[in-house]
Amino acid sequence: MSNPMPGVEIANTNKLIAKYDNETKTIFGFWVYIMTDCVLFASLFAVFAVLRNNTFGGPSGAQLFSLPYVLAETLVLLSSSFSCGLAVLSAQKRHKNHVIFWFLITFILGAIFLTLELNEFHKFIAMGDSWRRSGFLSSYFTLVATHGLHITIGLIWMAVMIGYIIKRGITDGVLKRIRLISLFWHFLDVVWIFIFTIVYLFGVLK
């Protein structure tokens, strides 16, 4: 088999390698960042585990938490993780409108989750059980709110992404970013599994 232009062939291959390397490099870098963020959450979990019984005369988790409410939050976040995955699938097929649709769904579900969480905080604070009440509540609010802060950052990022996709369509650069944001969003769902289990489910066990 002969190739009429071997030089061009090699140059193209080099460009492809460079492009592939660049993309895997960014995604791997973001993965390492996510791992460091896991350690950040782990430290907060450790603090929660140590302070969980320090209610200082205030309410315990079992007295505060409403499990059906938290279950609803969990399912909303899980669904948003799923719809984020569907956005990536559409992006791989370069279906611009599908991507925008699924990201909008993800954004709305994420916003609902955040509203539910803030509403829960508001309820506790209105009852006088804010983070000032006890060591337990300090650690509860900080752990859950740190997750909420990440969700907020994710929502801002997603809003920017949607604008970006509308303006530029799905280029290679945009596809890379879509992969990054989906990684971030799935990671937040993974962290929530542990918040759901350790903070809420363990918290109400008798």
Binding site: N54, T55, F56, W131, R132, S134, G135, F136, S138, T142
Partner: peptide
């Protein structure tokens, strides 16, 4: 005003 490391208020 949280109580993570305070001497009172359930901090450690």
């Amino acid at each position: 005003g949280t109580h993570f490391f305070t001497a009172g208020g359930g901090g450690n």
